[in-house]
Write a protein that binds this DNA or RNA. Structure first.
Lengths: 202, 202
DNA sequence: GTCTATAGCTGGATAGAC
DNA sequence: GTCTATCCAGCTATAGAC
């Protein structure tokens, strides 16, 4: 009875780290056990199988991706503030979770059904319709020029997420140190917001 | 002597398909053999090991990613045309190679040294400096407003590549069919170009 | 060159002692 | 609950016949 809750949490933390870095196929139960400072048998004792353990980690990660969007879409800030909030929150979140994009993108790609079911399961799926309504409303009011809402949303999340997915490549190409990388991403918060708002000027 | 050159090419084509979809860790030599219509032993006869075969496929894919950029960066078109050309070529290329982004991103992430060595090996590494010079020159001429060139480049490639990396998620969220997806991406060529040029207006 | 058979190893999962 | 030992499936790689 010594570990129990504690061991459980340690396993989740270790699994998160390993799965995020190596993906489902690349991760080894032994890696996770080592990371958690226990042995393989315990993993099965608590979480039955590799797949079950993975599912927990993946769902948590997928929810994380959605949550950032949906929280903001549900609020009713003015259009420009909403854009700024989406970008600020995404980039902040990704600075804290650098492996998230590649992990989620890769596993979705390997098994698309996973994300479909997670999205349908509602709870915190982002309300895309609400976003579209807001864009259309801002257009009617002549606050922004005409643009297809889905394409705008793609532009926003692309500019937020992609640099993190391509980080090793970007650091190689640009020769940026880890410190410079962080500064570059911090700069992006204001820069991307301004970039988008300028592009939308009527 | 029957197959020879032909068999070799068949193996590469099959390996490309399987590795692109499943990645290094997820792919099985048996999958590749099945796809090529031969048996496992042949793979080793021609390419020695799984790692060697993978390296060939990965290098080809990485070069592809770089080539799109470097060809345009080497030409000396006017600034606005260069932007349009980068976007057109990237999106066209990705419509033809939908698995490319996730594959390259994921494998770079698993083993960053791979891309570093590929980039250093020159040949067709994109000339980032040339891009930066062009942006600075356009700024001096007051053709565009002030922006850090690297950030601009990130914005451009992000908007081109990310949607393809996130395709299953986007189709789920938006409910787009495969046909609608293709139309959406075709639309993006003009849309992203206009979006960027508007954001850069002085 | 191409195939079948199999060696040799890795890794997920379980049995059973404590 | 936790550990050690072990089973067994699946995989890469090779040996050897044709």
């Amino acid at each position: 009875m010594s570990g129990e809750k504690n061991t459980e949490a340690q396993i989740i933390a270790a699994a998160k780290k390993i799965f995020m870095q190596k993906g489902l196929a690349g991760a080894r139960m032994q890696d996770i056990a080592d990371e958690a400072g226990i042995n393989k048998a315990m993993l099965h004792y608590y979480y039955r199988s590799k797949d079950k353990l993975f599912e927990i980690i993946f769902n948590e990660a997928a929810d994380n991706v959605f949550r950032v969007l949906s929280a903001i879409l549900q609020s009713d800030m003015p259009f420009r503030e909403m854009i700024a909030a989406i970008i600020d929150n995404y980039i902040d979140n990704l600075i804290k979770n650098p492996y998230l994009p590649v992990f989620v993108l890769n596993e979705i790609h390997q098994n698309p059904e996973r994300i479909v079911s997670r999205f349908t399961k509602s709870g915190n799926s982002p309300d895309i319709q609400a976003f579209m309504d807001k864009v259309n409303k801002a257009q009617k009011k002549k606050q922004i020029r005409s643009i297809q809402p889905l394409q705008l949303l793609l532009n926003i999340v692309s500019m937020c997420i992609f640099p993190f997915a391509a980080r090793p490549l970007i650091q190689t190409v640009s020769g940026a140190s880890d410190q410079q990388w962080k500064e570059l991403m911090e700069e992006r918060k204001a820069l991307v917001t301004e970039f988008i708002l300028r592009a939308l000027e009527p």
